[in-house]
Simulated scan of single mutants.
Amino acid sequence: MQLTRHTDYAFRLLIDLAARGGERTQIAQVAAAQDISHSHLMKVVNRLVHAGIVDAARGRGGGIRLARDPHDINLADIVRTTEPRCPMVDCGGCKLARRCRLPAVLDRAADAFITTLERFTLADILPPAQERASPSRTAGPAALRANL
């Protein structure tokens, strides 16, 4: 399974925002720091704002920041937000579609993938320096490794 660039950018954005510790920043700053297209990142931010994962404010003193603590942002929620319709196989035009059981097997695999992501939060994937800077509610990287 390969996630889209949209999801990759969402994770990079959220990790960057977590490193800023609640300070508002401009989309352009994150785009430059992460070498991401500004217009593409705006689309990612818009989707994450609508999902309540990122907070955005316009005007003087505005910008973006995490809407919740990294411990409260589940990785599965991020993927569900950025990959709302992510079939593992496109059966359109396949002559075997009516007799094939592959889509059902792949759906189960995708469910297992999401179930695994549900066990982790944004805090679990932050680099160690960021983890020390944020209040700890988990055992950190050791817990992450133990859960794998």
Rank of each mutant, 00 (worst) to 15 (best):
R101W: 07
F11N: 07
A28L: 13
L75P: 10
R12F: 02
D111Q: 10
T7F: 08
L75F: 08
N147T: 14
G52D: 06
A97R: 09
G61C: 12
D16P: 01
A10V: 09
Q29G: 06
L144V: 12
A57D: 14
D77V: 06
G93R: 12
V79W: 00
V105L: 10
R20W: 04
R80L: 09
A146L: 09
P141V: 05
E83F: 04
P70Y: 01
S37G: 13
T81D: 06
G59P: 07
T138M: 02
I114W: 00
V49C: 11
T4C: 03
M88P: 01
T138Q: 03
K43L: 08
R98L: 13
T7S: 14
R65G: 07
T81E: 05
R137I: 13
T138E: 03
D77F: 03
V54S: 05
A76K: 01
I78V: 14
T121G: 09
P135I: 00
R20C: 04
V44D: 00
G92F: 09
R12I: 00
I64D: 00
D69G: 09
L66P: 02
P87Q: 01
R20M: 09
S37R: 03
Q34A: 08
D55S: 14
H40M: 11
V79D: 00
S39I: 07
A31Q: 02
L3M: 12
L14D: 03
